[in-house]
Design a binder for these strands. Structure first.
Length: 434
RNA sequence: GGAGGUGUCGCCUAGCCCGGUUUAUGGCGCCCGCCUGCUAAGCGGGUUGAGGGUUGUGCCCUCUCGCGGGUUCAAAUCCCGCCACCUCCGCCA
């Protein structure tokens, strides 16, 4: 959630932020109204409650007639207290709903506008010119078939559309990528994690996935439990209700986990292959740090993503995602998009978001800081950030298509070879045409 | 899944049976000060978090004893439900 004090003190700032995302400012007025209603209700209840407690103390000491008299008075008061408390509870719920509807204001640097209004920050490597090389590139589905690496037909047979099997070299490729990613993160100081991927509503809501993104989330029938779409969820909720010592920051975690997405509203998009699927495995980086350090950490996460893509010898660009295309929690987001030869365009491979204190406020995660001038430490909000290291299917798509050769084989990037039993090339397992 | 037990302000712990000066006891740890040539010991004080009011920035108030209800003038304490952990049994990879 946004800082409620900021909303109260500078609502115009939040209104401007809503407009930058292309959203209505009505929610800001709703929230302001709910806030003053809430505060009035609190003052009301607290006054009555204080009175009740005072009388209660007197009753404990009073005797006889005096006691009976006090009891009669406070009995009426008790009813009022009950009503005031209910009013307060309701007002706080209203307020919470209103404030929760407001997304994290986008960073000043984030471009205004929607999905198409991103800004390209940099380009790396050169897309291969297959025409100059004299052959027509095969797409990843065809390459996956030739290499015995991807089986989408049987995936659909067993689980439905947007499911697949990784087989043989494909499965080997996933394990190699995961191990390589984990090694890189470990070397950078991340703590490796295998988190649970079924979570309670608190974790889902706390990370901002039950708002506008709720349609994309699998819920377990008959249970208040969800399948996560990213390990960001269990990694953020990991420290919920905790106060972290400032000296322990930044805390960096890297997790391997499956991810589940309904892909509601993407009917007909990317129906071929494994670009957009209901389940995939991912290695995700996650950082808890101070608000002051968050922007720098965001750059570092981007740096690790680029290091990763460089090692895979892919051509990619980095974009600054526009405000209207940010998730609920993000203040700023960078996507790394790799060139996919048969699509003739860049596709998102990794993504890193700075969520500042949006998630930590919802999940009650704070930092304990030594305060200047005072002996007592200070408890303050902290920031969370996340970044993909490797989302398996799309990375496999980019590797197969980018490093394919005319005979249907695929060259293995040098850095990946040690993780693939030293293989330099993935060879076809079926006869190849032309 | 069944039976029993436990859950207190960073950690440990008293209080619960028998509701009311409980402003939740004591210890450990941590912080500040005193003492001291230095360190330790000793002595004194402080130390959950959230929210509201006031702007006198220091003070006042409310909430917080696993969570949620209930009883009562009043709940850590009594009642109901839930959750987590421990022990035993059952089942299971």
């Amino acid at each position: 959630m946004i800082d409620p004090r900021l909303l109260r003190d500078d609502p115009d700032l939040i209104r401007a932020a809503q407009e930058k995302r292309g959203l209505s400012t009505a929610v800001v007025d709703d929230a302001l109204e709910a806030d003053s209603a809430r505060r009035a209700a609190i003052a009301d209840f607290e006054q009555l409650r204080a009175e009740q407690k005072q009388l209660g103390k007197q009753i404990a000491q009073a005797q006889g007639e005096e006691k009976a008299d006090l009891l009669a008075r406070t009995k009426r008061l008790a009813a009022d207290v009950k009503v005031a408390e209910a009013t307060q509870t309701e007002a706080e719920q209203h307020w919470r709903d209103a404030v929760y509807a407001i997304p994290n204001p986008a960073a000043e640097e984030s471009p205004s506008g929607g999905e198409e209004d991103y800004v390209v920050l940099s380009e790396h490597g050169t897309p291969r010119d297959f025409e100059a090389e004299g052959f027509v590139p095969r797409d990843h589905v065809e390459l996956g078939r030739i290499l015995g690496a991807i089986d989408v037909e049987r995936g659909a047979k067993v689980s439905g559309s947007r499911f697949y099997y990784l087989t043989g070299a494909g499965a080997d490729l996933e394990l190699a990528l995961v191990n390589m990613a984990m090694d890189q993160a470990r070397a950078a100081g991340f703590t490796t994690m295998i988190p649970p991927t079924l979570v309670k509503p608190r974790a889902m809501e706390g990370t901002g996935f039950l708002g506008q993104a709720a349609d994309d989330v699998y819920r377990i029938e008959g249970q208040d439990t969800y399948l996560v779409g990213t390990s960001e969820v269990p990694l953020a909720a990991y420290h919920s209700d905790e106060i972290l010592d400032a000296e322990s920051l930044p805390r960096r975690y890297v997790a391997f986990s499956p991810c589940f997405r309904k892909e509601a509203g993407s009917h007909g998009k990317d129906t071929r292959g494994i670009i957009r699927v209901h389940w995939f495995d991912k290695v995700e980086m996650f950082t808890y740090t101070t608000l002051e350090d968050a922007a720098d950490e965001h750059e570092r996460l981007l740096g690790w993503e680029q290091e990763w893509l460089d090692k895979l010898e892919l051509a990619y660009r980095v974009i600054d995602v526009a405000a209207g295309d940010l998730g609920l929690s993000a203040r700023r987001k960078f996507d790394c998009e790799a060139w996919v030869p048969t699509q003739g365009r860049y596709r998102e491979l990794t993504s890193t978001s700075n969520c500042t204190d949006f998630q930590t406020r919802r999940l009650d995660i704070r930092g304990r800081f030594p305060s200047e001038g005072s002996a007592q430490p200070e408890v303050k909000p902290i920031a969370t950030l996340n970044g993909t290291l490797v989302a398996i299917p799309r990375t496999i798509v980019a590797i197969l298509e980018t490093h394919q050769q005319a005979d249907g084989s695929v060259r293995v990037p040098k850095a990946l070879q040690p993780y693939l039993q030293g293989r330099e090339v993935l060879e076809p397992v079926v006869p190849v045409d032309g």
